[in-house]
Amino acid sequence: MHEHRSFLEEKRKIDELLQSNFHIVKVIENLSGAYVTMQRSDDADDDLSVTVHLLSADARRYMTNVLFAQRLKQSMTGS
C-alpha cells in the first residue's frame, strides 16, 4: 500500500489551486470523504469555483490546516 502517494496527489491539487490564488469557501464531509470547494480570491473578476474530492486521511487533515492558515491570514489582513 502506498497511501502516501494518494495523499501527495490530493495535496498537489490543493496546492496548485492555492498557488493560483484560490481559497477554500466550503467543506462538505460525508461517508465518501471531503468535498472542498475553492474559489479564486476576491481580486479576480470571474466567479470560478472548483470542488476537490479528498479521500486520504492525510489530505483531509492537510486541508484543515490550510483552512486554519487561511483564517489566520484573513484575521491578520482584516478581511
Binding site: K26, A34, T64, L67, R71
Partner: peptide, 15 residues
C-alpha cells in the same frame, strides 16, 4: 490541531 478544533473550523465552512 485537535479533532474538536477541526470540526469547529469546518462547521464555519458549511461542513
Amino acid at each position: 490541531m485537535t479533532w474538536n478544533e477541526r470540526q469547529r473550523m469546518i462547521s464555519m465552512f458549511g461542513g
